[in-house]
């Protein structure tokens, strides 16, 4: 399998080639868009900065079997427009600046998952270094949801992170659980069971209870919620976030999904959405504990959507 890396910074491009090679590709780098077209033979993954998203979209549109990976040091807004419309383009990695490569673990994980031979799901432990600690709970009720949110803040506090980070991650946990408990469950006809009244007090049967996980490895903190319905679609993710980031008048016509996506986006450095339609949705948020709040705010975010 070949991966073509379009990256103007030669030093960064060498690193990226190394990452893709480590993920099992035959990787090659080009440094200008003009050299892309002549190097596409046998390429299954085209990777580039979001600055060149127009070129990537043009090529992917003409080559339906090819997948794209983007990276960016800027806000996601521009790339989201294209990602919402093009299923081959579902991954964008944030990086610090134009002189830095995206995070190695993230590129390797994403690239590996795009290999057609790879069918295994990513485990929660794959997001973290070995030796992490944390907790997981099956969430049966709204009361338990609030308890978990409180516990997350407490956990973050024990890790020595600023209180505002704890509040933000508590907010993320609440958001993910609300979606998994109220929006995900559907009845036999495929209609949402509880989405009408999000103020209701819920007690869910075991088959509808989402699984909540949080853990930290000293550098990264991961929060994951899994539901067993698999209803989340790419337009919920990309379209919702694009709407939410527009900062226009709040549009409630789409159920306010955009705001929920923005809450997730604002609380993490990377969001992973794994969906097996009608089977399960697995949403994982990663927070980088080595960044202070100011660095975190200006750091470009990652967004990944995988659908089986």
């Amino acid at each position: 399998m070949r991966a073509l890396v379009l990256e103007r910074n030669k030093k960064v491009s060498r690193r990226l080639v190394r990452y893709f090679t480590s993920a099992g590709y035959e990787a090659e780098a080009v440094h200008t868009p003009e050299h892309v077209m002549g190097n596409l033979d046998g390429v299954s993954v085209l990777a580039a900065d979001a600055f060149d998203v127009d070129l990537v979209v043009e090529i992917l549109t003409n080559k339906p079997a090819m997948r794209g990976i983007l990276w960016t040091a800027e806000p996601l807004k521009r790339a989201l427009r294209y990602m919402n419309d093009l299923p081959q383009l579902s991954n964008i990695c944030g990086r610090k600046d134009f002189e830095s490569a995206p995070r190695a673990w993230e590129i390797v994980m994403v690239a590996r998952r795009l290999l057609p031979t790879n069918e295994s799901r990513v485990k929660f432990s794959d997001f973290l270094h070995w030796g992490y600690t944390g907790f997981q709970e099956q969430v049966a009720s709204t009361e338990q949801r609030d308890a978990i949110v409180a516990k997350v803040q407490e956990f973050v506090g024990h890790l020595g992170l600023p209180k505002r980070v704890g509040e933000s991650l508590g907010e993320l946990a609440h958001e993910l659980l609300m979606n998994a408990m109220f929006d995900a469950p559907i009845d036999a006809d495929g209609k949402p069971k509880y989405a009408r009244d999000r103020k209701a007090t819920l007690v869910l049967p075991p088959s509808e209870q989402p699984l909540f996980r949080v853990a930290a490895d000293g550098s990264r903190l991961a929060i994951q919620v899994i539901d067993s319905f698999g209803q989340l679609r790419r337009h919920h993710v990309f379209g919702g976030l694009a709407r939410g980031l527009e900062r226009g008048e709040m549009d409630t016509s789409h159920g306010g999904a955009g705001l929920g996506m923005v809450v997730c986006h604002n609380a993490t450095v990377a969001m992973f959405y794994d969906v097996v339609p009608n089977q399960h949705t697995e949403v994982t948020g990663i927070f980088d504990m080595d960044l202070n709040v100011r660095e975190f705010r200006i750091r470009a975010k990652s967004l990944h959507y995988f659908q089986a």
Partner: peptide
């Protein structure tokens, strides 16, 4: 660290060690 706040107590229905 989490032991101090009962994070690894077995009140969750699933295993308390994330997989």
């Amino acid at each position: 660290t989490w032991d101090r706040v009962g994070g690894n107590s077995s009140d969750g229905k699933a295993s308390n060690t994330p997989k």
